[in-house]
Amino acid sequence: MATKKAILSKDKIVSMYMDYTLENNEKPKSVYQFMKLNGHTENEFYSFFGSIEGIEKEIYVVFLEKTVELLHQNKDYETYDMKTKMLSFYFTFFELLTANRSYVVMSLKAHQNQLKNLMQLSDLRVVYKDYVLSILTDDYRIKNEKVQEYQEKAISEGSWIQFLMTLKFWLEDSSPAFEKTDIYIEKSVKATFELMNISPLESLIDFGKFMFKEKIQKKS
Rank of each mutant, 00 (worst) to 15 (best):
D11A: 04
E53P: 14
Q73Y: 01
E42G: 06
K116L: 14
L195R: 08
Y17I: 15
K146H: 07
I142F: 03
K219S: 13
D139P: 00
T41W: 02
Q33H: 10
R141A: 02
I205F: 09
T192C: 13
G54S: 15
M119W: 10
K5C: 01
I135D: 13
K83E: 08
I142S: 07
V14I: 11
Y184R: 06
V132Y: 00
V105C: 03
K209G: 02
L70P: 00
D130A: 08
M86W: 00
Q114V: 05
Y20T: 13
S30P: 14
Y128D: 15
F89A: 08
S134E: 09
T3C: 12
E78G: 04
F49N: 07
S30D: 12
P200L: 12
D139L: 00
V68R: 13
V14Y: 02
Q112F: 12
Q112I: 11
E157G: 06
K213F: 03
E179M: 07
Y17P: 13
K109D: 14
Y80V: 09
E78M: 04
M165L: 04
K83T: 07
K153V: 00
Q217S: 11
R141H: 02
T84W: 02
K85T: 07
F34W: 08
L87N: 01
S159W: 05
Y90S: 01
Q112V: 09
I59H: 07
L201C: 12
L121P: 04
D139F: 02
I205S: 07
G50H: 05
L108W: 08
E157F: 12
E42Y: 07
K218D: 10
L195F: 13
Y128I: 08
I142H: 07
T21E: 09
K129N: 02
W160A: 07
A99I: 01
S134P: 06
E202M: 07
F163K: 10
L201G: 10
M211I: 11
N117A: 01
E44A: 13
E44N: 07
F91H: 04
T137R: 14
N43K: 04
K109Q: 15
I59F: 03
N117C: 03
S122V: 15
A99N: 00
W160E: 00
T137H: 11
D130R: 12
I205Y: 09
H40T: 01
